[in-house]
């Protein structure tokens, strides 16, 4: 198989695909606490529709993934040739490859715009990297996650880490890294569409529907041109509410202790690539708001 420290699963938006891919992924991902034969597994097998199988047969490449934002083929009807020319596959392990008895498929090319200096090719291709019809991030995964040994401590730690990236509760998080958003590239979605974990570094998937201009709201916190940062003095102290979801009575599902503006994909924080201590123990239930209501 492939190195254990890379945990990356291409997600799917079609319900069939989502359930299927997610269930398969637990075999693929460092499945420490998960069992390959989770109770949902038989369901997944039933979902092996011709469509999905077809995708598997295609083998590698982003184009086999119906949920990928880079998949022009399914969403726009572009021909396969066009897709291949326009969208280089990402450097990720493909679920389908794993299923097909651990066939490793090498990435065809590095993503555009990551080579630092622009090439003419980058310029020529940049406008063709438009993503049409991205699907809102709203998908469920099945399976069970590791339960924190000390959930409260993990939760406190996670909330503190989360707060560090926000000027106040509700502010869009800053980028804790520099932006590789150079002329001719659009690379945020490569990690933040689905989420990715490399070592201990986690890129959370977006909690909101996909929008075109990431740097409108999210500001990078590193500038590679400058070594020394003079921190300006500022006495601003943002709102940091102490909140926790409580249940109205014993056994009732806890209410959502925060609002849902720009936070509609619960699994962003509470799912696989979420925060320790905040992850749900039942991600297979895809309709969160069926049981959890916004505290109002």
């Amino acid at each position: 198989m492939y190195p254990k420290h890379i945990k990356k699963v291409r997600g799917r938006t079609l319900l069939l695909g989502a359930v299927f891919a997610a269930s398969l992924s637990f075999g693929a991902c460092a499945g420490d606490q998960r069992e390959k034969d989770s109770p949902e597994a038989p369901v997944a097998i039933q979902l092996k529709t011709p469509e999905v199988t077809g995708a598997l047969d295609e083998g590698a490449g982003g184009e086999s993934d119906p949920g990928s934002p880079l998949d022009l083929q399914r969403n726009t009807g572009a021909t396969e040739d066009v897709v291949a020319a326009v969208v280089p596959p990402l450097v990720v392990m493909n679920v389908a490859a794993v299923v097909a008895e651990e066939v490793y498929v090498a990435p065809a090319a590095a993503p555009l715009g990551q080579s630092g200096v622009l090439t003419e090719l980058d310029n020529a291709l940049s406008n063709t990297r438009w993503i049409s019809n991205p699907t809102p991030w709203n998908r469920g995964r099945v399976g069970r996650y590791k339960t924190s040994l000390d959930r409260e401590a993990d939760r406190a730690k996670s909330l503190a880490a989360r707060a560090e990236l926000r000027s106040f509760e509700g502010a869009p998080p800053v980028m804790p890294h520099s932006s590789s958003y150079t002329a001719g590239s659009k690379t945020c979605l490569d990690c933040h569409m689905e989420g990715i974990q490399i070592g201990k570094k986690v890129a959370h998937p977006m909690p909101h529907v996909t929008m075109a201009n990431c740097t409108q709201c999210h500001v990078e916190q590193e500038n590679r041109l400058f070594d020394e940062l003079l921190v300006p003095g500022n006495n601003f102290s943002g709102d940091r509410p102490e909140r926790k979801g409580i249940s109205s009575m014993a056994g009732a599902p806890p209410v959502i202790p925060h609002g849902t503006l720009m936070r509609t994909a619960c699994l962003s924080c509470h799912g696989e690539f979420g925060y320790a201590g905040l992850k749900t123990d039942h991600p297979s239930r895809s309709n969160c708001m069926q049981c959890h209501i916004v505290e109002r």
């Binding site: 000027s167 800053v174 500001v219 990078e220 916190q221 590193e222 500038n223 041109l225 400058f226 940062l229 003079l230 921190v231 300006p232 003095g233 500022n234």
Partner: peptide, 14 residues
């Protein structure tokens, strides 16, 4: 330039 988040992203001219 007095907002830490903005200053961190763009501390100086180039």
């Amino acid at each position: 330039s007095r907002v830490p988040q903005l200053n961190a992203a763009m501390p100086g001219a180039y």
